[in-house]
Amino acid sequence: MTLDDFTSACSALAAEAPARIAAADSLDAWTAVRNDLVGRTAGRLTAIMGTLGEIPKEDRRVAGQAANAVKVELERLLDERQAELATSRGAGPQIDGTMPSRVTWQGARHPVTLVVDEIIEIFRELGFTVALGPEAEHAWYNFGALNFPADHPAMDLHDTLYLGKDTVLRTHTSPVQVRTLQAYPPPVRVLIPGTVHRRDPFDASHAPAFAQVEGLVVDEGITFADLKATLSHFARRFFGAGTKTRFRPSYFPFTEPSAEMDVSCGVCGGSGCSVCKQSGWIEILGSGLVHPAVLESAGLDSTRFTGWAFGLGPGRTALARHGIPDIRILYDSDVRFLEQFSR
C-alpha cells in the first residue's frame, strides 16, 4: 500500500460520506451509517486506518494526518445529523401544524362590565375612587334628599318599584351622592356604579333593572367649566381623540344648571346618519352642577361648596358599541353571546 493508495481511499470515503449521513432519516439509520463509516469494529475508516502499518515509515505521519482529518470531519457531520434527528424526533410521522391547538374555556366579563370598568379606569386617572350604596333605599335618599318636589310630574320620569311606604328600589345611583357626602368631608371625587330599578316593561329597549354609573365632585371653587372640561376629556378618552362634545339644557331635580352631553356621532363623524337620527350627535349622559339643596341634605354649606355630577347608562353604551339590537340579550345570559366577549 502506498501513500497515494491510502490518501485516495481516505478521499473517496470523505467524498461519499456527507450524502449518506444526510440521507439518514432516523436515529436507527444514523446508527447504521455511523457504524459503517467510523464504527470501531466494522467501520470503513477504521479499516483504512488499520492499513497504516503497511505504509512506508517515512509516509506514515502524512497518511495518519490525512486519515485523522477525515475522521474529524465525519464525526462532525455525524454529530450535526444526530442533533438534527434528535430535535425533530424523526421517529414517527411529521405533525400536521394546521390541526387545532388544545384550548381551554375562555372566561369573559359581561359587556356592561367592560364599559363600567373602562369608565372607572378613565376617571381613576383623574383621582376618582369608587363608592357604593344599597339598592333597597330609603325614599328620602332616593327622592327627598335629591330635591325631588313631592308629588310632582318630575316623579313620572322615575317610575318606582316600592318595597314599602318609605322604601324603594333605588331608581338611580344618585342616592349614593348624599350617602357619600354625609360620610366624607370634601373634597369628594367619586364614581358610583350600581344597579338601579324602574317600573318599566321588559322589552327591546327597556329593562326593569339596569346598570348606571354616576360621578360626583364636590369641593370649594368647582364650576360648570370643570364639568364641561372633565366630561369632554372623558368623551375623548372613551370614544376617541377626535370626539366633539355638545352640552344642551336639561332638567334633573338634583342638578342646576342641568346639561345633557352629546358626542359627535362615531359612525358618520357628525354629518348625519341613521344611527344619530340625522343629527350628527349621540346622547351620552346627563349632568349638572350639584343643586344646593343636595349639598344641604348632607349638611354642607352650599354657599361655600359647589360640585358637579353626571350619570350614564353603560347598558345603552354597550348596545351601541357592539351593535346589539335588543337590550334583553344582555340579560338572557346565552353562553354563545357571553363567549363573544372573551379575550
Binding site: T104, W105, Q106, G107, A108, R109, H110, V112, T113, T195, F202, A207, P208, A209, A211, L330, Y331, S333, V335, L338, E339, S342
Partner: peptide, 9 residues
C-alpha cells in the same frame, strides 16, 4: 374560564 352574567334579580 367563567362567563359573567347580569340577569334580572
Amino acid at each position: 374560564g367563567l362567563l359573567e352574567t347580569k340577569p334580572l334579580p
